[in-house]
C-alpha cells in the first residue's frame, strides 16, 4: 500500500488552493510511481486550524495549509511577516521570503514541523460601510476581528480601531445587523465570503501582507523514503510558487469585481498615511519581544531596505 500524506485545508473544494493541491497530489503519485498518495481534506471538514494542529500532533493528519493565525500557534515569530506596513509590493515579499526560508524552516524543525512552502492570502485592505477619509473616521468604526487572532487585535489596537471579535461565519450577519460596520481582508476573501456586497467603501491602502504556509509533521515527513522525500520537497516548492502566482491573479480579479460592484476606493490622505506609519511603529514596539525579537525584525527590514536600494 502507498504511504499516505493526509493534508487538510480550510479553503473549499474548487478554490485555487484545492485545485493546486490536487495537481500536486497527481504529480506526487506520478513521480513516486504510486508509492506516496496525497489525500486532501478540504473545506474545513477536519475543523479549523487549531483542530488540524491537534490532529497532526496525534498523527491523524500529516500536513496542513495554514494562515498566519495557525502558523503563529506553532511559531509566534513567523508573524513578523505580518507586521503592518512592512511590505509595499509582491516583489519585496518574494525577496524576503526567499532569503528567510531556511531560517524559518530551521525554527519550525525545532518545533517538530517541516516547512514545506510559503503561500499567501494577499494584501489586506480595510472595507467599511462608512467613509474612511480621515483618521477620526477610522476610530469611529466597529471593525470585525477574527476571533482568537491576537495579532490582528494588537494591530487594530495600535491603529486606535475597536475590534469586535466574531467567527468567520458570523461576519455577514454582523454586517447586516450593524453589529460591525467594517472588516479587514484581502480582496479575494471579501469576494469569496460575499462580505464586499455589504460595504460601500474601501480604503485603498495595503495594510498587511497576509501570509500562509504548508506545514508537515516531522514524523510523517521522515517516514517517507529519502528519494520520495526529495520528490515531495521539490514538487511542493514548485506548486507553492504556482499557488502564490494564482492567488495574486485571483486577488487582482477580486479587486475588479469589487470595483464593478460600485464600491468606492478611497485614497488615503497624507495625514492618514503619516498616522498609519506612527501606529505601525507603535505596533512593532508592542510586538517586541512578546511575538518576535528586535533582531529578527531588524533583519527583515534590512532585507527590504537592501531590495529597495538594489532597485534604484
Amino acid at each position: 500500500a502507498p504511504t499516505e500524506i493526509k493534508i487538510a485545508v480550510v479553503m473549499p473544494e474548487g478554490s485555487t488552493w484545492t485545485n493546486t493541491l490536487h495537481d500536486f497530489a497527481d504529480a506526487v503519485a506520478k513521480e513516486t510511481k504510486g508509492e506516496v498518495a496525497v489525500k486532501i481534506y478540504a473545506g474545513g471538514v477536519s475543523g479549523d486550524e487549531v483542530d488540524v494542529l491537534r490532529k497532526m500532533r496525534v498523527n491523524r493528519l500529516h500536513a496542513g495549509g495554514f494562515s498566519g493565525v495557525g502558523l503563529g500557534m506553532v511559531l509566534p515569530e513567523i508573524r513578523v511577516l505580518e507586521a503592518p506596513l512592512l511590505f509595499d509590493s509582491y516583489e519585496e515579499v518574494d525577496y524576503v521570503k526567499e532569503r528567510m526560508f531556511d531560517d524559518f524552516a530551521a525554527r519550525f524543525e525545532e518545533k517538530g514541523y517541516v516547512l514545506l512552502g510559503f503561500a499567501e492570502a494577499g494584501f489586506v485592505y480595510l472595507f467599511s460601510q462608512r467613509p474612511l477619509s480621515s483618521v477620526a473616521d477610522l476610530k469611529q468604526t466597529k471593525m470585525w476581528v477574527w476571533k482568537g487572532d491576537r495579532v490582528a487585535e494588537n494591530f487594530l489596537e495600535a491603529f486606535g480601531v475597536q475590534g469586535y471579535p466574531l467567527q468567520l461565519a458570523d461576519v455577514n450577519t454582523g454586517l447586516d445587523t450593524r453589529m460591525i460596520d467594517s472588516f479587514y481582508s484581502p480582496p479575494l476573501a471579501a469576494v469569496a465570503f460575499q462580505w464586499y456586497a455589504r460595504v460601500r467603501y474601501l480604503l485603498d491602502f495595503p495594510m498587511v501582507n497576509s501570509t500562509g504556509a504548508l506545514l508537515m509533521t516531522k514524523s510523517a515527513f521522515y517516514r517517507l523514503k529519502p528519494e520520495n522525500r526529495e520528490i515531495v520537497s521539490r514538487l511542493v516548492k514548485q506548486y507553492s510558487a504556482e499557488l502564490v502566482r494564482l492567488t495574486r491573479r485571483d486577488n487582482d480579479e477580486a479587486m475588479q469585481v469589487i470595483q464593478e460592484a460600485g464600491i468606492e476606493r478611497i485614497a488615503p490622505t497624507s495625514e492618514q498615511i503619516a498616522s498609519f506609519q506612527r501606529s505601525a511603529q507603535k505596533n512593532y514596539e508592542m510586538s517586541v519581544p512578546s511575538l518576535y525579537s528586535q533582531e529578527l525584525l531588524d533583519r527583515i527590514r534590512g532585507l527590504i531596505a537592501e531590495y529597495r536600494a538594489g532597485k534604484k
Binding site: 475543523g47 496525534v58 491523524r60
Partner: peptide
Amino acid sequence: DLLALQMILIEMNRLGSMP
C-alpha cells in the same frame, strides 16, 4: 492505533468553540 481514539476528544472539544 490507540492514538486514533484522540479523534473523539478533539472533535468533542470543538463543542467548546461553538458560540
